[in-house]
Design a protein around this nucleic acid. Structure first.
Lengths: 301, 301
DNA sequence: AGTCCTTGATAGATTTATCCAATCAATTAT
DNA sequence: ATAATTGATTGGATAAATCTATCAAGGACT
């Protein structure tokens, strides 16, 4: 049996006429005749009575026609459904972000993304790198925004932006008197860091190694915001990635001082990753394009 | 698009494996690969992600697969419908039975059914009511033999027979001295019952409630046969449905005594259920007719 | 009656779709 | 490193669907 045969049958039932039915199906009458006959043979039942001057559908035929209509409706439904989804920017896409990026990047991109791709449903998940990569690999996520480079070879990735590290100091800290800091300035300090599992922790540790700074091991924060609070409370200093370093709001006093490094400033690269086999490749690229553009604009401003 | 392609797709979604899917469809892997690819091109959407080590269905793919299943079901419905219009008593029919009926009813009916309808292939499945109804509703079964009444409104049903409950006692039990028991006789007893999920358990509990008997809660049997063994071993008493209460075989001593209730004896009604839309309606009726007749004869004998 | 027109059926040629066998490239397991 | 799996690809055989041309049967009209 075949969807085509069912279409022939329905057309025949509606026109009660082989020639007109054939015409409607854009085939010749013998074609339709043969196929209907074959269908009847396959089903072992006579579907139509061929009478001179037209065709009448048998009782069994009526039932089959009714069922055939349902089949065709469902089948056409598939086509209609996929037609809607042919546009890569429709449907839903699941994106994971690392916790040291999500709360600082998302405010910049969620609204513009929604405006640019109103039919795209963004499902955002926050998770640390390891778990993110696992969920990406097993198909639970379509894309992940995290620090590059990646170890996983089955994943493809591209860069979105590079963010410099800034030093966060409590108000009144001696180093706050300098406008730009050098690595060597930090040598006598001890650094507050995030707990294990955050890639930012590893990145900061690397900077520390270069600067000859020790980690303050009696305390590890579970989030960047906690870390910021601790610095503000005077417990120590820390490194903040660019997007997480708050712009000084005009007229607002902060107990936190942010200082940049003198070039060459340490930095980290944030990118987006996806399965190289992903069916959502196109969607991911379009999102990446927009995010890149948005970040460029935000940095200039 | 083509019904065959949809079958390929569903097989692929179920096996997550081109080769195994191809095998199931009785074609070679390249054939299935090509057709799936063609289907994807026609729909303009990627349906599966090809990864080394298997296949995963995309989100759009999942939707298409679900729709494809409906199309195929409807299409198969046409075949089934016409098949039974040729001769309702040919082909195969899948019947589910509850575990407290199957082993006691089937010996009475399987052979006569086969003799009466030699071209009908009986496929018998044993399952508890809940699972039976589920498999009936989703089309895995054509009919189900279970206790009435049913809750499910999408199913039609008719009665096959009513079976009284009997009391099973260990040999030498005081109650065994009476020929007929009243509910009130049981008041001081504690009853052994089946484990949860068996409808017989619920029915027996209802009788217990009427009789003011308590369930023996430290033990629940997984089958009627286990239950019978326990009673024979003197652990307690139980209720057995009529067909499961063994006739006393002449000359054979049993450590089990069976006693009927004085009228009005408690009983349960066993019936057969089917989807009201089932293409096998006629077949089910003919089977029900014969089963009803057979049971009537068996009861008289 | 005879002719014309309509109906669907049939035969043979042609095009198209489907399929398989063999093989490849990539990845994973041993 | 080697073998085993994975799905993709290619070329040619096979089967199916289609078209053109024609036929036979029935009804309508002159």
């Amino acid at each position: 049996m075949n969807l085509r045969d069912l279409r022939y049958l329905v057309a025949l039932a509606e026109t009660r006429h082989f020639r007109r039915a054939a015409e409607r199906c854009f085939v010749t009458q013998p074609t339709l005749s043969t196929q209907i006959k074959k269908l009847e043979e396959q089903l072992g039942v006579l579907l139509v009575e061929r009478q001179s001057g037209g065709v009448s559908v048998t009782r069994v035929g009526e039932q089959v026609v009714a069922r055939a209509r349902r089949v065709l409706e469902e089948a056409d439904g598939i086509v209609a459904f996929t037609r809607q989804h042919r546009d890569p920017m429709t449907g839903s896409i699941q994106i994971g972000l690392i916790p040291t990026v999500a709360p600082y990047l998302l405010p910049h991109i969620v609204e513009p993304l929604h405006e640019a791709f109103p039919k795209l449903e963004l499902l955002l998940v926050e998770a640390q790198t390891e778990r993110l990569l696992a969920r990406l690999s097993n198909g639970e996520l379509d894309a992940g925004i995290l620090a590059l480079p990646l170890a996983d070879e089955r994943l493809a990735s591209r860069s979105l932006y590079e963010e410099a590290f800034f030093v966060a100091l409590p108000r009144g800290h001696p180093l706050a008197q300098k406008k730009l800091l050098r690595m060597s300035d930090l040598a006598s300090e001890s650094m507050l860091l995030l707990e294990d599992g955050h890639c930012l922790r590893d990145q900061a540790l690397e900077v520390c190694a270069l600067a000859g700074v020790n980690e303050r091991t009696d305390f590890r924060a579970t989030s960047l915001e906690t870390l910021r609070q601790m610095v503000a409370a005077g417990v120590g200093i820390t490194l903040l990635p660019e997007l997480a370093a708050p712009r000084p709001v005009a007229g607002q006093q902060s107990s936190l001082e942010i200082r940049a490094f003198a070039p060459p400033a340490p930095s980290r690269r944030i990118g987006i990753a996806w399965r190289s086999t992903s069916a959502r490749h196109e969607t991911v690229q379009r999102i990446a394009d927009l995010v890149e553009e948005l970040l460029r604009l935000a940095r200039v401003a």
